[in-house]
């Protein structure tokens, strides 16, 4: 009998240890306890806890997203040189971070960072984890802070909605999560590391292919446009800034042959129609402000 008490004690301690770091509700804990009380046999089931594998892009951790984003950014930065203009880059970072504060995802693993690419191509790209790129060619088309703010809001929208991570093929993600679920070592052995690195390469190519080659889906683009208006208005920018920007692309041949922003399915006209409808429904929206346009002109002087 003494042995059985010891056994129950052991089981209870074990259950306690198992539950300590969890955030299970009282109901669930109550359920666990009543079960443990019933019979010692049930305790066996406590030990037979299966490992639930992660599934889907939403379960990629914040830190993993950061590492994926770093590598995606490293690939983008191997294709395009950085435009060396510190004051302009600082201004773009201020505008971008101001919008990020009013986005649905203001806090991100290593914060938002914006870089200007030295190319006349009209393009903007958002790597997962909040590393956002705009081209010099795109900046040349901006006439005020609202236009730039809304474009950056669109890119922050892609990050907040995790559109980049959604490009990862489901089968690949399942493979990654399955592989990670197998072992519980603190660091990887050579074989496991090699296998994970191959999977990492696959994940990166899925994302880069979408970002650089194929473009986002129609639905993702419209969603990011919607988020741009929401975040832009919250920040206090005139949301029409994005419409005025798209207007510069209408009938532009470089838009048709471009990448990223302009290789996507909706045409600038289609996007403008959707945006105008959304903005009209908002009623009173912020207007362009002289103080902002003045500092924009100052920062962009060096570009012209």
């Amino acid at each position: 009998m003494r042995a059985s008490v010891a056994r129950i004690l052991g089981i209870l301690v074990m259950v306690g240890v198992l539950l300590t770091p969890s955030s299970a509700s009282f109901d669930q804990l109550g359920g666990v306890l009543s079960k443990v009380k019933k019979t010692a046999d049930d305790a066996k089931k406590v030990v037979e806890v299966g490992q639930k594998l992660r599934s889907g892009f939403a379960e990629i951790t914040e830190e993993e997203e950061y590492y994926i984003g770093r590598s995606v950014a490293a690939m983008i930065l191997s294709k395009y040189p950085v435009y060396q203009n510190a004051p302009l880059t600082q201004y773009v970072n201020l505008v971008g971070n101001a919008v990020a504060v009013y986005s649905d995802r203001p806090e991100i693993y290593a914060r938002y960072h914006f870089q200007v690419l030295d190319t006349e191509e009209v393009n903007a790209l958002a790597a997962p984890g909040g590393l956002i790129f705009v081209s010099k060619g795109l900046l040349r088309r901006c006439q005020d802070e609202e236009m730039l703010g809304l474009i950056l809001a669109h890119e922050i929208g892609h990050v907040a909605a995790k559109h980049g991570l959604q490009a990862i093929k489901k089968s690949r993600l399942t493979e990654v999560f399955t592989s990670l679920g197998m072992q519980a070592a603190q660091s990887y052995g050579p074989q496991e590391l090699a296998q994970l690195t191959t999977m990492f390469e696959g994940v990166l190519s899925d994302i880069v292919e979408q970002l650089v080659e194929r473009g986002y889906s129609r639905a993702s683009e419209y969603e990011a446009d919607g988020l741009a208006v929401t975040y832009g208005v919250r920040t206090g920018f005139d949301p029409k800034g994005i419409v005025r920007f798209l207007q510069t692309m209408v009938g532009d041949k470089s838009a048709a042959s471009g990448k990223g922003w302009f290789k996507t399915h909706p045409t600038p006209e289609q996007r403008m129609t959707g945006l105008n409808k959304q903005i009209a429904a908002l009623g009173d929206v912020p207007k362009v402000d002289d103080a902002r346009t003045k500092r924009f002109d100052q920062a962009f002087n060096s570009l012209k």
């Binding site: 240890v17 198992l18 300590t20 079960k35 049930d42 089931k45 490992q51 993993e64 519980a184 994970l196």
Partner: peptide, 28 residues
């Protein structure tokens, strides 16, 4: 974790805690 027992929906094991630190990281 998904427990073998339906009455125990969410709890952690030591191995799950170790797994939480894994994934795409600096080593990868």
């Amino acid at each position: 974790l998904t427990a073998a027992n339906k009455d125990m929906k969410t709890q952690a094991t030591a191995s799950e805690v170790a797994l939480a630190a894994k994934g795409f990281n600096k080593q990868v």
